[in-house]
């Protein structure tokens, strides 16, 4: 069962959906960041699965996944530093308190 493409595509789609739900439903900015990482990893799984089962060239998907990891690390660094800035100014990292701008 684990050795076919469908399993991995379903897993990735599920992970993506969980991540999206997390982004929309969670109130803490850290939890939102974790959910975004889940979505990125879902895309990585997709790339790896397609690479493993469909594409003769063995390296492409793996290289893309490596790049996604590096980019995700940079993203986490930026996101965490902005979250710290939010905490310093607003004394909270709850999404509901970061809601001055509207109209």
């Amino acid at each position: 069962m684990y050795n076919n493409l469908q399993t991995f595509l379903l897993l990735a789609a599920l992970l993506f959906a969980i991540g999206l739900y997390g982004v929309l439903a969670r109130r803490s900015l850290i939890a939102v960041l974790i959910s975004v990482e889940l979505m990125l990893n879902a895309a990585s799984i997709n790339f790896m699965a397609f690479n493993r089962f469909l594409i003769p060239e063995p390296a492409v998907g793996q290289i893309i996944t490596l790049f996604i990891m590096a980019v995700a690390a940079a993203e986490a660094a930026i996101a965490l530093s902005i979250i710290i800035a939010v905490y310093r100014k607003l004394k909270s990292i709850n999404v509901e308190h970061v809601n001055e701008l509207r109209g």
Partner: peptide, 29 residues
């Protein structure tokens, strides 16, 4: 309001680039 705008831009951008990457993986497959 600056950090608020920053955090909104960051997360909306991050989520939309996740969508893009997921779409790209299907195109690739």
């Amino acid at each position: 309001i600056d950090v608020e705008a920053g955090v909104k831009y960051l997360f909306i951008g991050a989520v939309s680039s996740c969508f893009m990457l997921f779409g790209l993986s299907y195109l690739f497959g």
